[in-house]
Design a protein around this nucleic acid. Structure first.
Length: 235
DNA sequence: GTCCAGGGCCGTT
DNA sequence: AACGGCCATGGA
């Protein structure tokens, strides 16, 4: 049986419902008069090749010290940032990346995230990619989940699932992204709904990959197994 | 103890 | 262009 991105979305949506993504404690930001989008931007860097449970500990450390905003990040020495974000791993390079990214926003956009995101997506993306430590997935996560702008995020899970089904043979980041965006826009014209699908489908793919499409897959109960050619180890 | 997680950079081929 | 080594913590 054949499957496409829209069908995949419908099956996973039926399986998992509304994903809670990207998790942010908005009450914290309301009380402290900080921008919750900044937490998403920082989280996007902290979660690079790292379990979210570890990122939560790092974000919690920053919140406890009331350092989770642009000016307070920039006031800290890189070493001090590293101490707070240590649970998220790679803390030396991530501390440097956080500081570089944050100073970029302050210096070029006067710390105004509305100004930063209220532009052409391709411009935003190009700028993010020019910063050290921000690659395609981090940039696109920032644009989609902090900027609330329609771009499809590809990660290692998406590539794995595409290869196994198979959905798309060219497995480079850009090819997979183009494929999903084209296919999903083909079936849905409403901009708001496209944004919602981009937002949710990436999250749902992560769930699927964690529960079933693992490195050692659990195809037996996988919700898409009948659409997938990769059924080597049915246990 | 081993494996892996919501990647990206840099050097080598 | 593609690949390997490296970065680091914590949970399974």
């Amino acid at each position: 049986m054949k499957i496409n991105p829209k069908k995949l979305y419908e099956i996973l949506k039926n399986e998992y419902g509304d994903p809670n993504w990207w998790p942010v404690d908005k009450k914290y930001h309301t009380q402290n008069r900080t921008d919750f989008r900044f937490e998403i931007l920082i989280g996007a860097i902290l979660t690079q090749n790292t379990a979210w449970s570890n990122v939560e500990k790092a974000l919690m450390n920053l919140k406890k010290q009331k350092k989770l905003d642009i000016d307070n990040i920039l006031e800290m020495e890189t070493k001090e940032i590293g101490e707070l974000i240590k649970p998220s791993g790679y803390f030396n390079q991530k501390a440097k990346r956080l500081k570089e990214f944050t100073s970029y926003i302050k210096n070029n956009y006067n710390s105004n995230l509305d100004t930063f995101f209220n532009r052409d997506i391709r411009e935003i993306r190009k700028e993010l990619l020019s910063l050290n430590g921000i690659g395609p997935e981090t940039a696109d996560s920032m644009i989609l989940y902090a900027g609330n702008l329609p771009i499809f995020v590809v990660d290692a899970y998406t590539k794995r699932i595409c290869a196994r089904i198979p959905l798309e043979t060219k497995l480079s980041y850009n090819e997979i992204q183009k494929f999903f965006q084209k296919e999903l826009k083909k079936e849905e014209k409403d901009t708001e709904k496209i944004l919602k699908i981009f937002n949710e489908l990436h999250a749902l793919i992560v769930y699927l990959a964690k529960d079933y499409c693992r490195k050692k897959p659990k195809c037996l109960k996988c919700p898409i197994s009948k659409y997938c050619e990769y059924k080597k180890e049915l246990f």
